[in-house]
Amino acid sequence: MAVWIQNQTLGLANIIHSGGMVMGPLIALSLVMWLLILERTLFFRRLYRKNMGSRMAITHIRDGRIPDPGQYRGAVSLLVTEFIRTRTGNPKLDRHLLDASVSRINRRMTKFLALISVLAAMAPLLGLLGTVTGMITTFDVLATFGTGNAKAMAGGISEALITTQTGLIVAIPGLYMKGFLERRATNLQQRISRVGLYLRRHL
């Protein structure tokens, strides 16, 4: 097992080295993107679990009772908790505060999604940059040695292909996850907006 891991590590190191200078930024971009995706995935997972209904929400608001985190952790619970902490007791003002709470929470749903989209879109562009630098290397070898140095030519071509491949490998799942997270964010925003309208009518 240790030998296999060592071989895989060496193989990966060789691929990164063969990809040239563009591989470093590509790897960094990929790490940042996936950390943001993981953060959003865990955030949405928490908001989908242990949710409360609209009637339970209005009961907590009328009693001035912040939901128990052990019983309720979902998006509606987050809205109820934030509203109870900011309410004044004035129904007219409280309706505005409720609307502000709904808007604030809905904005939190889309946090980092635009950045994830930008990073996923940048990956194939960096891969294309690697393609260009690899072809430049190949043409430099051709200009210097002609077709007599096949090894140097292969290095430039492999740099071009590896960076293109890596850019697509980073971008495709990144764009898929961005769409997946956007759908979950939209569902939660719609749920919070519906509950917000229900609570507004009963304040």
Rank of each mutant, 00 (worst) to 15 (best):
T138R: 12
L113N: 13
R191W: 04
M153V: 07
A123C: 12
L119S: 04
I105Q: 08
T166W: 03
L128D: 10
E159F: 07
M153W: 08
Y176F: 15
V118C: 03
G146C: 06
Q190L: 11
M109G: 07
L125P: 08
G130W: 01
Y176I: 13
L181N: 04
A121Y: 05
P173I: 00
G134Q: 06
R108K: 05
R108I: 02
Q165I: 14
D140M: 03
I116F: 04
T164Q: 07
L168F: 07
Q189S: 14
K151G: 00
P173D: 00
M177C: 12
D140P: 08
T110V: 11
T137Q: 13
A185R: 02
Y176A: 08
M177Y: 15
K111R: 03
V170I: 15
S117H: 15
Q189T: 06
I162K: 01
G127M: 05
Q190H: 08
E159L: 14
P124Y: 06
I172E: 09
G179S: 15
T133E: 11
T138N: 10
D140T: 10
V132T: 02
G148C: 00
T163C: 08
A160Y: 09
F145C: 03
V141A: 15
V102S: 04
F180L: 10
R183L: 05
R184T: 00
A120K: 10
T131Q: 01
K111Q: 08
M135V: 14
I105T: 05
R104V: 00
R184E: 13
A114I: 06
T137G: 12
G155F: 10
N149W: 06
I116L: 01
A150M: 09
V118K: 03
A185P: 03
T164K: 03
